[in-house]
Design a protein around this nucleic acid. Structure first.
Length: 190
DNA sequence: GGTGCGATTGCA
DNA sequence: GCAATCGCACCA
């Protein structure tokens, strides 16, 4: 019988350099940690994510090939991909897979005993965790930004659905690439 | 160089 | 239902 992982142990690059859907499911229950330039470490347990997987994924920023913005998606897994959406909100992604294969996972929600760190929705989450463009391309195994093992989420507690806000992606909009912990449903209607 | 729009959110 | 707000993708 394997000894349970220390919940405070940090995820290493091997965790991220796996198939994107596997990483997405395994991100549930992990603890996002950010140490801002000033202040204490911000910690929150991930409750909802969406996978954007490969060059064929029409919902992905990489659907039309590499651009200055999506460059981090083509790097080897284990770094952040952060972009500005609607001119006002940041979205935080975890880059996955091998170098040259564009893939990332959008972190959509997290919970914390600290109420101000419980956030539903990708824009609210980045605001709560003080994540902005400065963290674009940052390693996820450094001392500024990292993930901790947290507590495992059993299979029965994982639910899936199509991704939010990607109606333009044709058949790819139907794929169940959104993973969430049952009992932590998205609040936003749609 | 010009134009259209988005992996969202909050308010009417 | 719709405005906010701007970097960037795309076209010329």
């Amino acid at each position: 019988m394997r000894r349970p992982e220390n919940p405070r142990s940090r995820l290493q690059v091997e965790f991220y350099r796996r198939p994107t859907l596997d990483v997405a499911r395994d991100l549930l229950g992990r603890v996002l940690c950010h140490r801002p330039a000033t202040g204490r470490v911000l910690r929150g347990r991930i409750t909802e994510v969406e996978a954007y997987d490969g060059p064929e994924d029409r919902a992905s920023h990489a659907a039309r090939g590499p651009t200055p913005r999506n460059r981090p998606m083509y790097e080897a897994g284990g770094i952040a991909y952060v972009y500005l959406i609607y001119g006002m909100h940041h979205c935080f992604n975890v880059v996955t897979g091998d170098a040259g294969y564009p893939a990332a996972i959008l972190i959509r929600a997290a919970e914390s005993p600290r109420a101000e760190l419980s956030a539903r929705g990708p824009g609210r989450l980045t605001r709560a965790f003080a994540i902005d463009l400065e963290l674009d391309g940052t390693t996820l195994v450094g001392d500024d930004l990292w993930l901790e093992a947290g507590a495992p989420v059993p299979a029965r507690a994982v639910s899936r659905s199509p991704r939010i806000g990607v109606d333009y992606a044709g058949a790819w909009a139907e794929k169940p690439y959104r993973f969430l912990i049952a009992g932590h449903p998205e609040v936003s209607r749609r």
